[in-house]
Amino acid sequence: MKTTPNNRKVKSNKASTLKLRNLRYYLSQTTKSLWRNKFMTISSIITVAACMIMVIASFAATSNLNLFLDHLESTVGMTVFLDEDLSEAGRDIVGQTIMVVENVRDIRIITPEEALENMERQWGMNIEALQGDANPLRWSYMVELYDLSLQSQTVDAVSLIFGVHSIDASADISDTLVFINNVVAIVGLIIIAVLGILSIVIITNTIKLTVNSRRNEIVIMKYVGATDWFIRWPFIIEGVLVGVLGALIPLVAAWFAYDNLVASLTGDTGIFAAMLRGLPFRTTAEIFPFVAPIIILLGAGIGVLGSASSMRKHLNV
């Protein structure tokens, strides 16, 4: 009986590389353990999903708020009322002076008649008593700014110009928007950080379960000469799978829900309809193709961190 198997030479080994030949083995290990610990698997996925929903939501919110700000910068700006006794030449000089003030993008002159028309349109009525010579409104300039957050400095500068009577600078809107934008960004970051850490901790624990249930197997693997990387790969893949699944689920959901959400926010019955109508919103196509790869990579990264920390703590390889 001559049945001794051939002696295979130990091949040169870059042990950390993922060998395709082994991938099937790794995947079968991974799916088995994910299934065996299905409750932990599901709760890990849910935690990652919660984290990712927050990432997506804050990203969508800040990117829309930025868009609102841009929009407001070009439409709101400020209105500069002129002294009543100013001649046409005087009005021109004031206009040219405003144009050289820092942060001023463009100006447009508004006649008292135009101002009255605007007012009538806004109020939805015809105010005949005020038309013609009876018009009490002043000449004014509509001023567009480059940066709405620097509005108060610009107001200060413009108010010093001779011939300027007063300035209406709806400062509250711009300040509020800039503030909201910052708050959303900061709160979003905090929530994302907390949930991100939580996700890593939970994945760490899920993988700890797998490590424990396979401790025997790992000891035997070491006796028969498995490299540390061979032992690690299934756990890394497990972490990545949990992370990516946790990212994909909210991503797909948000991708399809986004348009409806915007529609319901701005629709007639929406609570914020009055506030939001007329504002531009980012489209699905503007947000998701860009955010999707980030979210998926983030999920995978959280998964890798979770499995790495679990292996460092619970698997001496």
Binding site: P5, N6, R8, K11, R21, Y25, I220, M221, A226, T227
Partner: peptide, 16 residues
């Protein structure tokens, strides 16, 4: 299993 952890091909495994 002892062969899988080395770089044995599935053909070698099925033979040995």
């Amino acid at each position: 299993f002892a062969m899988q952890i080395t770089d044995a091909s599935s053909r070698e495994i099925r033979r040995n």
